[in-house]
Amino acid sequence: MPRSSPLERPDCKAISKAIQFKPDDHEAWHNRGVALNELGRDEEAIASYDKAIQFKPDKHEAWYNRGNALFNLGRYEEAIASYDKAIQFKPDYHEAWNNRGNALKGIGRYEEAIASFDQALQFKPDYHVAWNNRGIALDDLGRYDDLGRYEEAIASYDKAIQFKPDYHEAWNNRGNALLSLGRYEEAIASFDQALQCKPDKHEAWYNRGVALGNLGRYEEAIASYDKAIQFKPGCHGTWNNRGNALKGIGRYEEAIASFDKAIQFKPDYHYPWYGKAVCYVKQGQVDKAIDHLRQAIKLNSQARDWAKTDSAFAPIRQDPRFQALIQEP
């Protein structure tokens, strides 16, 4: 039997019938858009919201959901314009202010995004989602601006957690902000809280591994990466970091195997090629070390800069092949 279209589901059929009998039924057009949104058919959803707005221009829900569909398509500027219309007709629409902030964040306008989240919180002070998103925007500013924004981000995540103590996303994000400040023990405690709320959160296991690695606690880091891999086996970054931890305790064969897994999942990822080169130097396999370093540099010239000052390459530094690799092209 041919499979029926998603819009032939009973609820969708009822909506289509309502539109057929009353083509200017703005509620029906809006509901059709919502149904299409749920099916991931965002372009069609936008067309339905446009019809709803045509018949009722001040329908704030349609402007809001239209913004969400545009956001899903990565059309952030248009999404912002839609959220602005929703807010024009319902100024205290905290969800619209929040999602507007996310769209602004998506195009790197972080200060404006924070202001938008602040508006959402003015209307709903216990809106944990907005506190979390505000923290993410502050995190982004910390990367591009100054470290002081990480402290503000942590304060925002604390507010999110205050209103939703089992909010694993906020615990994980809080840990990342602490990680960026070099407060590794506190970061681990935050990741542990995230994992208490959601034991299969692979990002938290990964980030916990990073923090442990930075403390030189490589065995524990490996155990954390193993848990991350258990829940997301194809994550190339986790396999790479696991390789680095194994390299850190001299388990070079296992490290190479881990780097190989990273390369299997992302062949153009220069980090594991570089990591393997270091392992081969440690094992005295100079030819393999040169070959892998060459490939790392080919994939990303950043590897050349690392090799110039990396003491791991001291045993082969005078090798003409190594010297040729580290020269600027």
Rank of each mutant, 00 (worst) to 15 (best):
Ala277Gln: 08
Ala113Ile: 01
Tyr150Trp: 11
Val34Met: 08
Arg143Lys: 13
Lys232Asn: 15
Gly248His: 07
Ala103Asp: 13
Arg317Pro: 04
Tyr144Glu: 15
Leu104Asp: 02
Leu39Arg: 01
Ala228Pro: 04
Ile15Ser: 07
Lys282Gly: 00
Lys17Ala: 15
Ala307Ile: 03
Asn214Glu: 12
Asp140Gln: 12
Trp239Lys: 07
Arg183Trp: 11
Leu70Phe: 10
Ala257Met: 02
Asp291Ile: 02
Asp24Ala: 09
Tyr64Met: 00
Ala296Leu: 05
Arg75Phe: 01
Lys124Gln: 09
Asn37Leu: 03
Asp260Arg: 02
Arg317Gln: 11
Gln283Tyr: 05
His60Phe: 15
Gly248Leu: 08
Tyr225Trp: 09
Pro315Trp: 14
Ser4Leu: 03
Glu77Leu: 06
His26Ala: 12
Lys247Gly: 09
Tyr76Val: 01
Ala45Val: 02
Asn244Leu: 08
Gly148Thr: 07
Ser190Arg: 06
Arg174Phe: 09
Glu220Leu: 02
His292Ala: 04
Cys235Arg: 02
Arg109Gly: 06
His236Val: 00
Ala113Cys: 04
Glu77Ser: 14
Ala312Ile: 00
Ile249Tyr: 05
Tyr274Ile: 11
Gly101Trp: 07
Ile256Asn: 13
Ile229Lys: 01
Ala153Lys: 08
Asp25Leu: 01
Ala130Ile: 07
Gln264Trp: 05
Ile161Ser: 13
Ile46Tyr: 07
Gly135Cys: 02
Asp305Trp: 07
Phe313Lys: 09
Asn133Ser: 15
Phe313Ser: 13
Tyr157His: 10
Leu141Gly: 13
Ala303Ile: 00
His30Tyr: 15
Ala204Gly: 04
His94Pro: 00
Phe259Tyr: 15
Asp11Arg: 09
Lys298Asn: 11
Lys17Asn: 12
Ala194Asn: 04
Lys105Asp: 15
Gly284Thr: 04
Lys288Cys: 00
Ala296Ile: 01
Gln283Arg: 12
Ala312Gln: 13
Arg149Glu: 13
Asp84Met: 05
Arg217Ala: 07
Tyr218Lys: 06
Ile222Trp: 12
Arg66Lys: 08
Ile114Leu: 06
His168Trp: 11
Ile326Asp: 15
Glu328Asp: 15
Glu185Trp: 01
Asn172Phe: 08
Gln285Tyr: 10
Ala120Tyr: 09
Gly101Tyr: 06
Pro2Asn: 12
Tyr271Met: 08
Ala221Phe: 05
Ile87Val: 09
Asn98Gln: 06
Ile263Thr: 05
Asp84Cys: 10
Leu178Phe: 08
Ile53Leu: 11
Cys279Ser: 14
Ala314Trp: 00
Asn133Cys: 09
Lys247Asn: 14
Asp291His: 10
Leu7Pro: 00
Ala130Gly: 12
Lys124Leu: 02
Ser16Met: 07
Ser180Ile: 00
Trp171Pro: 01
Pro91Thr: 09
Lys17Ser: 13
Asp24Gly: 09
Ala137Cys: 06
Ala211Val: 02
Arg317Phe: 12
Asp126Cys: 02
Ala18Ile: 01
Gly248Ser: 11
Glu254Ile: 06
Asn244Met: 03
Ala211Trp: 06
Tyr127Lys: 05
Asn240Trp: 00
Trp205Ala: 12
Leu7Gln: 15
Gln323Tyr: 03
His60Val: 00
Phe71Ala: 13
Asp166His: 09
Pro199Phe: 02
Ala277Pro: 01
Lys308Ser: 06
Gly142Glu: 07
Arg100Ala: 01
Ala257Gly: 12
Arg242Gln: 10
Val286Asn: 14
Lys85Arg: 13
Arg208Val: 05
Asn98Asp: 14
Asp118Arg: 03
Ser4Asp: 13
Gln318Pro: 00
Ile154Ala: 10
Glu254Asn: 12
